[in-house]
Design a protein around this nucleic acid. Structure first.
Lengths: 198, 198
DNA sequence: TATGTTATTGACTGGCTGGTCAAAGACGTG
DNA sequence: CACGTCTTTGACCAGCCAGTCAATAACATA
């Protein structure tokens, strides 16, 4: 019976994400969002609740997608777990060194969050844990197949990779080029035992 | 002959820095700055030129001080160069895991900068280069004393440490605790040859 | 085709934004 | 003690901000 919506929520969030990724939360105006999404102000409010809420929504989807992407990269393919991590790090180096590279919404949220109980901070924390978990799983597989010593500290190593990728992201944004970032990634991989290379 | 200023520039910049570190550039209002510095709006304009310019000034000083601090940590003391890096990384882990830890102005500027020719981005880039240079110098000393292989890629390793510290900073802001961050630092140090430990 | 329900539209608002202006004030010099 | 210079002060402004409201439109059902 009710009047149906003209828009698809996912598309709106995705348009909003683009704006947020470029401008961040504080510097994005409601008008920017209206323009980017094509919706009227009121419709945005009805559907999402406000600028911050919409950002939160965008952040959640972004983090889910990021997790999915990393998970994909580390779990599939016929390479060994360690080789998959290696490949992933090298791909990240290329990705982050793209000239128009922007910082992820997660990193943005971290920086723009105010205080620890800020929902932004909480979602971000969860995102970090997620990522670390994915790395840990992959490293666990490496351990099972004997590529990683049995006494390796999985959670710590996993968090280490999260840290390195976050750092590479920032460096890429700072204009560090592809070669340099790739070298960083290769250095970072030295904490892992060398994998026999085909 | 002219009327003398009532304030000391350095103090004003330092007060402004505190505000910027907490709120970032976009979310800080001129009024915040007026309140924090005690100056009137017009005085701020006379002396610095505007919000963005003041931020830029704060950023420059912040980055100089950061460079000085790292430089201090990596060049002095009777420990070997590699041990100094080790100590520095562990101190960073503790620093970044403080509950009220905030992200540095440099990182903030990186995230809030718009485009590559933004002065914010340029200063930040210079800051990164500085830091990397300091690490490289220290690593060079390690190389000279034979603690690091002669074929080690100094610039790359240096940039690697910058990346890791940046990542640790973000993780600390995300609430990763002291123990976890210390473990990350120790993992990161595994790219260096083990130093004989007294 | 009438109705109930929700979506959309566009005008509106009060407060805040960064930034400016003109007048008054403070000082060292001559 | 008067003058020139720079600083300070506080009032001022136009534009923009997030968010609201009331009126209108679109649909599914009955």
């Amino acid at each position: 019976m009710p009047r149906p919506r003209k828009f698809v929520e996912r598309d709106v969030v995705s348009s909003a994400t683009e704006v947020f990724v470029v401008n961040g939360l504080a510097a994005t105006t409601l008008d920017d969002l209206v323009r980017a999404t094509g919706l009227g102000k009121q419709s945005l409010y009805n559907a999402f609740g406000g600028k911050r809420e919409l950002f939160l929504r965008a952040l959640s989807e972004d983090r889910e997608e990021a997790a999915r992407a990393v998970s994909e990269a580390l779990q599939h393919g016929d390479a060994s777990p360690l080789e998959r991590i290696r490949g992933h790090m090298l791909r990240m180096a290329i990705e982050f060194s793209r000239a128009d590279s922007r910082v992820s919404l997660t990193t943005r949220a971290l920086v723009e969050s105010t205080g620890d109980q800020d929902p932004l901070a909480e979602v971000t924390r969860a995102g970090i844990e997620d990522l670390a978990g994915i790395y840990a799983t992959c490293l666990g597989h490496a351990q099972q197949s004997g590529d990683l010593p049995a006494d390796a500290n999985l959670p710590s190593l996993a968090m280490y990779f999260v840290a390195v990728t976050r750092g590479m992201e920032l460096l890429g944004r700072a204009g560090v080029g592809r070669a340099a970032l790739t070298a960083v990634a290769l250095d970072a991989l030295h904490v892992l035992p060398a994998t026999p290379h085909p």
